[in-house]
Structures are given as structure tokens and as C-alpha cells.
Amino acid sequence: MRIGDFKETYAADEAVFRTPTVRFWLWALAAALLVFPLLAGEYLIYMANITAVAVVGAVGLNLLTGCTGLISLGHAGFMGVGAYTSAILITKFGVPFILTLPISGLAAALCGVIVGAPSLRMKGLYLCIATLAAQVILEFTFVHWESLTHGIRGLNVPAPTLFGLSLASGPAFYYVIMIVAAISVTASRNLFRTRVGRAFIAIRDRDISAQLMGINLFQYKLYAFALSSFFAGMAGCLMVNLLKVVTPEQYPLHLSIQYLAMIIVGGLGSILGSILGAIFMTIVPELLRSALGLFQGLDPQIMSYLFPLQTVIFGALIVGFLVFEPHGLAEMWRRAKAYFRLWPFEY
């Protein structure tokens, strides 16, 4: 139970993390993430790594779709741009991994701006189709620009290093990914305390009134595309250095849709929602698989029938969540917190 929480200054009122309780749990989370690789094995670290990459990507897409109201089906394509930029810079020009991280983001952002250009005149489904075209064009480019991308065979990258230290092992790269994820989340959270972020929300809620308020729609829509793709590009860069290979088949339309599913399940327009959605979409299939794997000891044959079941359960879970909580996991989390805020003295 939390009482006596008074805001006495404007700074206190505007703080991101407003109460000592929140700050305490945040530090606890940071500490847990810090010691996690010391306790967990390769597998759990890998899962944490891909989850954190998904968080970076989902936060990026949420800026565009959740906060600015522009639907994009090209997110995987932008991740691919980041991944290829990093792989090409590392293999052909020997650029250190850490430098390719922002450059990948910028390259993807540039693509995002180009793709976002028609967004001034298009909304909703129409924009959706335009970004779908971008996804298809990017996939085509990855396959056919063979001199640069090595076509379908893709590019193999060496294990990343940072200031001479090898990041080949899962735990070492874990810290890099976690730091990038933390910075991404913090940056996007803070974005909504600036003019840019508020302009995004104004555009989402009603673009005509946003324009009347003096927001240059075209400029801010492009900002949204650029920022969102920047995050996607960084996620792609992290992914290629994690897997040490990039092929066109890693960034299909299916992945774009998966990212959309993440932010919808998590909660549109909520940073926490993006995080929870990314975790849900990455971890739950694994949990389902492990749970069904427990039956393997009973009869190996039964597994050929049980494994397909996990897709059905996962689909049912997503539909279930959306039916019972259309605002996503973030809203569930908020209600759970609200319940415990005065517990056990609700009345």
C-alpha cells in the first residue's frame, strides 16, 4: 500500500518515475538484469537477447503505429536494412560493430523517410498498402542486389568486438543489447514529454485539429517514420551481430505482422505495452513448447500431434487477450497495479 505521495514541485509532477516504490522496483529490475547472465545458461541468455531485440523493434513500431497512428507493414524491411547495413559495413569496410549500430539506424531511417513520404496523402489502409509495397521492394532488393548483399546466400559476419574485447559469447553481447534496449526505451519514453512526441499524439487523435494547432503534418509524420525506422535499423543490427548471419529470408512480411501483433497485444501507444508485447510474443511460444515438451517422455509419437497444437493455443491466447482486454497487456498491468495500490484496504 502506498500513501503520503504528494507532488510538491512541478518537477516531481512531471517525473517519469514518480514514486519511491516505482523507483525501487526499477532499480531491482536493473539489478536483476545485471546479474541475470551470471546465473542463466546459454539458452536463457539467448532468449533474453532476442526478447530485448524485439523490445527495441516493438518500441520503434509503437512510436509510428501506436503513437502517431500510421500503420506500417514495412517494419521487418527496415530491420533488414539495418541488418544489411551493419553486415556490409563490417564485412566489406571493417567498420567496428559499435559504429555500425547508429549508422544502421540512420540508413533505416533514411529508407523510412522515403517510404513515409506518401503518408501525407494517405492514411489507414492505403498507407498500410504503401508500406507493404516498401516491404516487398526491400525484400526484393536484399535478394537481387547480389554484389552488395550476396543474394539469397546472405552475409556472414564475424563475432562482434568492442574496443578489442570479443563479444562472441552470449553473456557479453547480452550487456550490449540490454544497454541499447534500455536507451531506446528511455529515449522513447522521454520523447512524449517533448513537442515532437506530443505532436505525434495530436496527429494520431485528429490530424486536422493537429494541423490547426500549427503542427506541420508532413514534417512530423516523417519524423515518426524516421524515428521508428531508426529503432528498427538498430534492432536489425543487433540481430545480425547476434546470429552472425543475415539472409533475406530472416526479414519477411510475416515478421512485420508479428511486430504489429506485439504492439497490439501489448497495448497501442504505450511504451510498457511494447515491452510486454515483445516479451509475450517471444517468450510464450517458448513456454508452450517447453510445457508440451514435458509429454515427450510419455510417448515420442504423441509429440507430432502435440507440437502443432502450440500454434493453436498461442493464437487462442492472442484472441483471448484482445477480447477480454482490447487495450492490451499494458492495461492489464495498470489494473493489477491499481488493485494492489490500496490493498488490502480498498474500501
Binding site: G154, N156, A159, L243, K244, V245, T247, E249, Q250
Partner: peptide, 8 residues
């Protein structure tokens, strides 16, 4: 793809 990713 998985073979290539796991090769190193």
C-alpha cells in the same frame, strides 16, 4: 538458414 546461423 539455421545451418548457416549455427555454423560458427
Amino acid at each position: 538458414g539455421v545451418g548457416k546461423a549455427m555454423a560458427p
